[in-house]
Lab assay of single mutants.
Amino acid sequence: MAAAAAAGAGPEMVRGQVFDVGPRYTNLSYIGEGAYGMVCSAYDNVNKVRVAIKKISPFEHQTYCQRTLREIKILLRFRHENIIGINDIIRAPTIEQMKDVYIVQDLMETDLYKLLKTQHLSNDHICYFLYQILRGLKYIHSANVLHRDLKPSNLLLNTTCDLKICDFGLARVADPDHDHTGFLTEYVATRWYRAPEIMLNSKGYTKSIDIWSVGCILAEMLSNRPIFPGKHYLDQLNHILGILGSPSQEDLNCIINLKARNYLLSLPHKNKVPWNRLFPNADSKALDLLDKMLTFNPHKRIEVEQALAHPYLEQYYDPSDEPIAEAPFKFDMELDDLPKEKLKELIFEETARFQPGYRS
């Protein structure tokens, strides 16, 4: 834990890192770190609560700039109880001085990944967590956004079992017609939660990839272990087919990539493993919904509104309290091709509203 900075004593240090967030945020305490930044909790002297502050230093890398800009653009436009918001952003007053960006968010005690390492969940908890994931996802999908990296560590939890989806750095506007060349190379989302079509096709992607990830998360809540822990690309596919069985001819016809289709045709026939054999203690309604989410063919996979209306979630289902976005989200430009200098300018502009004396 960093010592509390005395008023006016300059930035606090946390594990050798400068955290320049005073005077409003003090009493910093280390939480963890990701690929390009550290997260601390801090005391907000204005709202009198502890908050989470993520320090991001992305400006050396085009990919990190892209992810940072995506996350900020999306989260500043989203407003939903099951999606983490941005409360404040701290950065230098000029673009030349801006080396880091500090993002202030609600402090959540833990995440689903940490929880599943230590606790076996009751059916009631599984049901409530799944409902909140789908409630947040309904809003995301209504904005025409794909999260693309749903996994237990991106689901934040607090002691009252509130759940918030975080990390929109890989999110995209849904565009089933656009052929994202190089899709697989830039697709760094965790393999275990990846839909089979991501490994088999490169053309376009749809909201059904997020539903697949939610199915993987439900299976993990039922058993405290990942359902498809593939060691590499082909191993991942083999794990999936080992449980779902061989795809039907109709399902194979959806695979545009001939090499991928021929690979699947070359494999020995596998039978589907019954879900109640894998999860003998699970609620039968939970397994019915799991089956509809972990469907090989993305066109037959359940959609988020149908999933919310499934009998497993009937005690929570309330369409009048499951809000959607006001308007579909649009990125003005494809960020993939922009140089990091341009992305830095866009991050600077996007964060201006939090600067003292800002006038829109």
Score class of each variant (00 low, 15 high):
242 G>Q: 08
99 K>T: 13
104 V>A: 13
343 L>V: 01
9 A>P: 09
198 I>Y: 03
227 I>P: 05
146 L>W: 07
220 E>T: 01
264 L>P: 12
244 L>G: 08
311 P>H: 15
79 R>Y: 01
197 E>Q: 08
329 F>I: 15
91 R>W: 01
313 L>P: 05
133 I>D: 07
19 F>I: 15
152 P>C: 11
233 Y>K: 11
306 Q>K: 12
298 P>K: 03
145 V>R: 06
158 N>K: 15
69 L>M: 14
339 P>C: 04
45 N>I: 14
234 L>W: 02
141 H>K: 08
317 Y>C: 11
70 R>N: 02
56 I>H: 15
93 P>F: 00
3 A>W: 08
70 R>S: 14
340 K>Q: 01
131 Y>M: 11
95 I>Y: 06
74 I>G: 09
331 F>A: 01
199 M>A: 10
184 L>F: 07
175 D>C: 03
344 K>E: 00
207 K>E: 01
85 G>I: 12
95 I>R: 02
193 Y>P: 06
192 W>I: 07
318 D>A: 14
352 A>I: 06
346 L>P: 03
171 A>L: 10
159 T>R: 02
17 Q>R: 10
126 I>L: 07
285 K>D: 04
309 A>G: 07
260 A>T: 12
333 M>P: 12
105 Q>V: 14
2 A>K: 00
99 K>N: 15
294 L>S: 07
292 K>E: 12
247 P>T: 14
346 L>C: 06
103 I>A: 10
255 I>C: 13
303 E>S: 03
169 G>R: 07
110 T>N: 13
4 A>Y: 00
146 L>D: 06
18 V>M: 02
139 Y>N: 14
148 R>E: 09
357 G>S: 12
13 M>P: 09
190 T>A: 13
50 R>I: 03
346 L>I: 05
89 I>H: 02
270 K>G: 03
48 K>H: 13
99 K>R: 11
64 Y>I: 15
279 F>L: 15
290 L>Y: 03
148 R>Q: 13
319 P>Y: 06
192 W>Y: 08
227 I>C: 06
229 P>K: 06
105 Q>Y: 15
128 Y>L: 02
252 L>Q: 14
173 V>C: 04
210 D>S: 06
42 A>F: 03
329 F>D: 03
99 K>G: 09
86 I>W: 15
292 K>L: 11
170 L>Q: 14
251 D>F: 08
141 H>N: 15
41 S>V: 13
195 A>C: 11
99 K>H: 03
211 I>L: 05
249 Q>N: 05
137 L>Y: 06
326 E>S: 09
7 A>K: 04
149 D>Q: 04
233 Y>W: 04
330 K>G: 08
82 N>S: 11
242 G>I: 03
273 V>D: 01
105 Q>F: 15
358 Y>M: 08
64 Y>W: 13
49 V>H: 04
121 L>T: 13
34 G>D: 10
134 L>Q: 15
268 P>Y: 02
275 W>D: 10
219 A>C: 10
347 I>R: 09
260 A>I: 03
108 M>P: 01
247 P>Q: 11
276 N>Q: 11
133 I>Y: 07
269 H>G: 07
291 D>Q: 11
312 Y>D: 01
293 M>I: 14
297 N>H: 12
61 H>N: 14
288 D>M: 01
2 A>C: 02
235 D>T: 02
132 Q>T: 10
202 S>G: 10
294 L>R: 00
236 Q>F: 04
322 E>Y: 02
267 L>C: 06
157 L>G: 05
317 Y>E: 00
78 F>H: 04
204 G>W: 14
103 I>C: 12
6 A>R: 07
222 L>G: 09
7 A>I: 01
223 S>M: 11
103 I>V: 00
133 I>A: 00
273 V>W: 02
26 T>Q: 08
161 C>W: 03
48 K>T: 11
48 K>G: 11
222 L>Q: 14
107 L>D: 12
255 I>A: 11
265 L>H: 04
37 G>Q: 00
308 L>G: 11
57 S>R: 14
65 C>L: 14
6 A>I: 14
241 L>N: 11
57 S>M: 15
58 P>R: 15
209 I>M: 00
241 L>C: 06
105 Q>H: 13
57 S>Y: 15
100 D>H: 08
247 P>I: 10
98 M>K: 14
257 N>G: 05
135 R>M: 03
143 A>P: 06
196 P>F: 04
208 S>K: 04
62 Q>C: 09
360 S>F: 11
302 I>H: 06
277 R>W: 06
131 Y>S: 05
38 M>W: 10
145 V>Q: 06
280 P>W: 05
